[in-house]
């Protein structure tokens, strides 16, 4: 099956080889876990390794911030823009949604000009102020995602979760959005022996097999690096994992 590889070693393996083409892929995590880095790496590797130009739609950070953050990983986004392989677009959910609904809108034109195949939307959380009720929110996000897919793009959508450690808990609207996307990756902080580490889990990939285990990852000077699965612990996504023996003990011995 044809795959859109992120170029992030370990993550592509977790996804069963990469994202499926023209799909919407949600990456959710607490602030600082590396959602935007993953998205930028997806875009950068697209241009640098797979000759697939990209767009970044940002609803919060200025493009300058992306240029600067990307540069710290050795990714020259300014040069990619100058060579016509990338556009970093600062806009708002309401404007982009309205723009995409039009024939020949600005985003559509820009995507065609650069021959974009990938898009990073950072972040989907900003749609929540567009529509307070869950059904309207789902409808807006669904239209937005389909309009970008229509342009032949494979999407990475970031979304913030509020809890730093463990399960953030999802509201009704947030759960609805998870149904709209084709893949769903969770990034979490995890406390192990008084040190905070980062864990990721691919919860779903529609229409494909994927890894079910929870992997440790780090953001290094080269970007995101997915490492081995957490061994001998459980409760990883709760934020406070226990050794398997302790968990067994708690579950069976003391009851």
């Amino acid at each position: 099956m044809n795959r859109v590889r992120t170029g992030i070693q370990g993550y592509d393996d977790m996804l069963g080889g990469g994202y499926l083409p023209q799909t919407a892929n949600l990456v959710e995590g607490a602030p600082g876990t590396g959602k935007t880095t993953l998205g930028m790496q997806f875009i950068y590797n697209g241009v640098a390794q797979f000759d697939e130009p990209g767009l970044i739609l940002t609803f919060e950070e200025f493009p300058q911030q992306y240029y600067s953050d990307a540069a710290s990983f050795g990714w020259n986004f300014r040069a990619l823009e100058q060579s016509g392989k990338l556009r970093v677009v600062l806009t708002s959910p309401e404007v982009s949604l309205s723009d995409l609904r039009q024939v020949g809108g600005r985003i559509e034109t820009m995507a065609r000009e650069v021959g974009a195949r990938r898009v990073l939307v950072d972040s989907l959380s900003h749609f929540e102020r567009l529509a307070p009720d869950p059904l309207a929110l789902r409808e807006s996000v669904y239209t937005f995602i389909n309009a970008l897919k229509r342009e032949g793009l494979t999407l990475v959508l970031t979304r913030e979760s509020t809890a730093l450690l463990g399960d953030a808990g999802t509201g009704e609207g947030e759960e609805d959005i998870a149904f709209v996307v084709d893949s769903y990756t969770l990034m979490r902080y995890v406390e192990i022996e008084s040190a905070v580490r980062k864990a990721m889990l691919v919860l779903k990939v529609r229409g494909s097999e994927h890894a079910r285990d929870i992997r440790q990852f780090e953001v290094t000077g080269r970007g995101l690096e997915v490492q081995a699965r957490f061994e001998g612990r459980e409760g990883i996504m709760s934020g406070s994992p226990r050794r398997m023996a302790e968990a067994f003990d708690q579950a069976f011995v003391h009851k």
Binding site: F62, V88, L90, M110
Partner: peptide, 16 residues
């Protein structure tokens, strides 16, 4: 100039 692909309303640009 610094954010050349910005596209938004006056209200949002004011916020930025």
């Amino acid at each position: 100039h610094e954010n050349p692909h910005t596209s938004d309303t006056a209200e949002n640009i004011a916020r930025y």
